[in-house]
Computed example of a mutant assay.
Amino acid sequence: MQNQTNIPQMGFGTYGRQGDAGIAALLVALETGYRHFDTAQDYDTETEVGEAIKRSGLKRSDVFVTTKISTHNLGPGQLIPSLERSLDTLQLDQLDLTLIHWPSPNGAVPLEVYIEQLAEAHALGLTKLVGVSNFTIALLEQAKASMGDVPISNNQVELNPLLQNKRLATHCKNEGISVTCYLPIARGVLGDVPIIRDLAIKYHATPEQIALAFEFAKGYIAIPTSGRAERIRANFEAIKLSLSVEDIAAIESVDCGQRAINPDWGPNWD
Rank of each mutant, 00 (worst) to 15 (best):
1 M>R: 14
3 N>Q: 15
3 N>V: 11
4 Q>S: 12
5 T>Y: 13
7 I>S: 02
11 G>S: 09
15 Y>V: 10
16 G>T: 10
18 Q>H: 13
19 G>E: 11
22 G>M: 09
22 G>Q: 09
23 I>E: 02
26 L>S: 05
26 L>V: 08
30 L>M: 08
32 T>M: 11
33 G>V: 12
33 G>L: 12
35 R>M: 11
41 Q>W: 04
42 D>G: 13
42 D>R: 12
45 T>P: 02
48 E>P: 05
51 E>P: 05
54 K>D: 13
60 R>N: 08
63 V>P: 00
64 F>D: 03
65 V>Q: 06
65 V>N: 03
67 T>E: 06
67 T>K: 07
68 K>A: 03
69 I>D: 00
76 P>V: 14
77 G>F: 11
79 L>M: 13
82 S>I: 02
84 E>Y: 07
86 S>H: 00
87 L>N: 10
90 L>Q: 11
92 L>K: 04
100 I>T: 03
101 H>I: 07
102 W>L: 07
102 W>P: 01
102 W>R: 07
103 P>F: 00
103 P>I: 02
104 S>H: 01
105 P>R: 11
105 P>E: 11
107 G>E: 11
107 G>P: 08
114 Y>R: 01
114 Y>A: 06
115 I>D: 01
116 E>A: 08
116 E>Y: 06
117 Q>K: 08
118 L>C: 05
120 E>M: 10
123 A>W: 03
125 G>K: 06
126 L>E: 04
127 T>E: 03
128 K>W: 07
128 K>T: 14
128 K>F: 06
128 K>S: 13
132 V>Q: 03
132 V>S: 13
133 S>Y: 00
134 N>I: 09
136 T>G: 05
137 I>C: 05
141 E>F: 05
141 E>M: 08
145 A>E: 08
148 G>I: 10
150 V>M: 10
150 V>I: 12
151 P>I: 03
152 I>R: 01
154 N>H: 05
155 N>Q: 10
159 L>W: 02
161 P>F: 03
166 K>E: 14
168 L>A: 05
174 N>I: 02
178 S>Q: 10
178 S>V: 05
180 T>M: 12
193 V>H: 00
194 P>D: 13
194 P>R: 12
195 I>D: 01
197 R>W: 03
197 R>A: 15
200 A>G: 08
203 Y>P: 01
205 A>C: 13
207 P>T: 02
210 I>A: 00
211 A>N: 00
215 E>Y: 01
219 G>K: 09
220 Y>F: 15
221 I>K: 02
223 I>V: 14
226 S>L: 06
226 S>E: 02
230 E>N: 12
232 I>V: 14
235 N>E: 11
241 L>F: 08
244 S>L: 06
247 D>K: 00
247 D>E: 04
249 A>L: 12
251 I>T: 03
252 E>I: 07
253 S>L: 14
253 S>F: 07
254 V>R: 03
254 V>E: 08
257 G>W: 00
257 G>L: 09
257 G>D: 04
258 Q>M: 15
258 Q>V: 07
260 A>R: 15
260 A>N: 14
260 A>K: 14
262 N>R: 14
262 N>W: 13
265 W>L: 08
266 G>Q: 08
270 D>R: 12
